[in-house]
Design a protein around this nucleic acid. Structure first.
Lengths: 353, 353
DNA sequence: CTGAAAGCGCTTACAG
DNA sequence: CTGAAAGCGCTTACAG
């Protein structure tokens, strides 16, 4: 702490024979300093390996920094987005003493327009960094471009957008997570068994997300010794329990020999509900996310494995990445794949989202 | 940030009709303030819900805070303790701007006396918080008592000490992790299969640690439908490859029908090495920790599952818990069980220690 | 028992 | 283009 005894702005000012005000100007790359003075100061800073004292900076600065978060609202359909909110709030509690405020925006994940509307609302405000879960590719890309023009750093969570100049992506490697799911299913099935893949989603847009997992899953069994038969069904756009039950009834009637089901998202709890009600618990079931409804079915054995990637931590890390970049001017990993966690009956108790 | 405009020491002083120096005295519970004044100030602080500004406090304070860490040194035997060091360093980088310094002490995990010696060295210094991995129960308890007398908060990682007045334990629930291991082995074996448990340790003292996992493992198969036969072997005190190979050769000659081996610590890589050399890769193998040697064997299929509990994060969280308690005067969970991670061929790439 | 002043390392007007 | 001063919310001697 008191290491910068001889290395603060004061010392730089002394050596450069200028006032600390001038040092501050070059420190923040402001105008109104002669080339000569500027270079002299820059040289001294380099020589001293000057590291600004963040405490002093934030204490002295009047300016509060504003981050915005934009994620889907928690819906009756799934409480998945509860976890990211918690992560954001945790990060906020930690960095608010640095004068950072986080404005939380939400959109309806079944309504593109609500997303667009919120991006506009955000850009109306003064904002120094944005955390976003980009469900809609096109719209997210457009938003991202606007942010880049305004030089606002963005961190993406949950799913990535290709070809993006975002500051960082923090979330799953979707393909790899499908691969792992297949690996777990592999422990459950025998040779030549039949596997059913189930995609459940209202919006066709969130599909690429699920399809990527599906690809990973299928690729695992390419040329695999167990040679399972893999069939799939898409349940869309109606995703209430009734619609799901109807579709599953139909497909399982045609395929009475299905031994395992892989659900590509958190709606695995609906499938579990169905299997339980219809007495089909013997079918192995693997799906996603740590939701209470799913845990119940993990406990009673209807669900065998849940794959989860700490949504709370994704959001927490996302905000902290912004903090790292904006406040500390530090480097941030452009892509941070979250570990792919396997949750079973035996370890769910100590799982931390 | 600028929320405490009307809520700082200044405002308290104004309301109480005293100087800020006096406010500071009661804030830090120092002597030299009359009961009456003290209570008046206390009341006002409560009324204002006063939250000290940590930035200002650390900036103004001359005192640097010292934390000490005491963990086993990395040995040629296992590089396990590399990860905690990294965690400590990460935390250090994050909090050094708050004027915190971490002194790192190491001991030989095969030598009690080296542990005792280091605890003495630590207590010779001015220290405001201690992180310790307590391998030796007795000695750790004694150390802990001394710390309590000196009112130095201690955080334990890796393994807990029963009946302890530590600030917090951050690490595995050993029994539960043994349970999960059994659960994973269960996916690999058939009815009536034979399972071998292997404990490898030089020091009998680190045994309680391994035995707890063993208990969890065995308890899983109590009254289990698969009714496996479980045998065990302890390899101690010599734990070089030769001794391990000799012992395994012996026991596998007597038990040619062993279908799965559970190794209770990171030495699983030695067992893997043995199985590979002797062409016994078909025996399923489950063990602990994310070491490079083990990952190699995970990749080539000799090891089926590794159980790991983020040693780096344990240490990181341990330091941050001290920071939370000492710097921010915040609450800390007395027991924080780390999630029990399952590592396979398919997800090791994204695993974060 | 209490107060007034200096200072931590910065930023922010304001003056020239 | 540059400097001098005030201030952020605390802590730390020092004086009384």
């Amino acid at each position: 702490m008191k290491t910068n005894l001889q290395t603060g702005v004061k010392e730089i000012a002394r050596r450069a024979n200028v006032s600390i005000g001038t040092v501050d100007r070059v420190l923040h790359n402001r105008t109104g300093v002669s080339k000569v003075t500027k270079n002299k100061i820059l040289d001294i800073m380099k020589e001293l390996d000057y590291q600004p004292n963040i405490l002093a900076r934030r204490l002295a600065s009047k300016k509060v920094l504003r981050f915005a978060s934009l994620i889907p609202a928690v819906s009756s359909e799934t409480k998945f987005w509860d976890a990211p909110i918690k992560g954001i709030e945790m990060a906020e509690a930690e960095i608010k003493q640095f004068g950072i405020v986080i404005d939380k925006y939400f959109y309806d994940q079944n309504d593109k327009q609500s997303f667009v509307k919120q991006t506009k609302n955000i850009l109306k405000t003064e904002v120094d960094g944005i955390l976003v879960a980009p469900i809609f590719i096109e719209e997210s890309l457009a938003f991202s471009k606007l942010c880049n023009l305004k030089k606002i750093p963005q961190v993406l969570i949950n799913s990535d957008i290709p070809n993006e100049t975002r500051l960082s992506y923090i979330g799953p490697d979707l393909f790899q997570s499908g691969h792992l799911s297949a690996h777990m299913v592999n422990y459950l099935i025998k040779k030549n068994d039949k596997i059913l893949i189930v995609n459940i989603s209202k919006e066709i847009d969130s599909y690429h997300h699920l399809l990527r997992k599906e690809e990973g899953f299928i690729s695992y069994f390419k040329n695999h010794e167990k040679k399972p038969t893999i069939i799939k069904t898409d349940i869309t756009p109606n995703t209430d329990y009734k619609s799901i039950a109807a579709k599953l009834t139909e497909i399982l009637a045609e395929n009475t020999d299905v031994k395992a089901i892989f659900v590509t998202n958190s709606r695995v709890f609906s499938v579990a509900q169905f299997l339980e009600k219809t007495g089909l618990q013997h079918i192995f079931l693997v799906g996603y996310d740590f939701l209470p409804e799913s845990i119940t079915h993990l406990k009673n054995g209807v669900i065998d494995f849940l794959i989860c990637q700490k949504p709370q931590e994704q959001a927490y890390k996302g905000i902290m990445a912004l903090y790292q970049n904006v406040v500390l001017s530090g480097d941030v990993e452009p892509t941070y794949y979250m570990p792919i966690d396997i949750i079973t009956k035996e370890n769910y108790k100590s799982y931390r989202n």
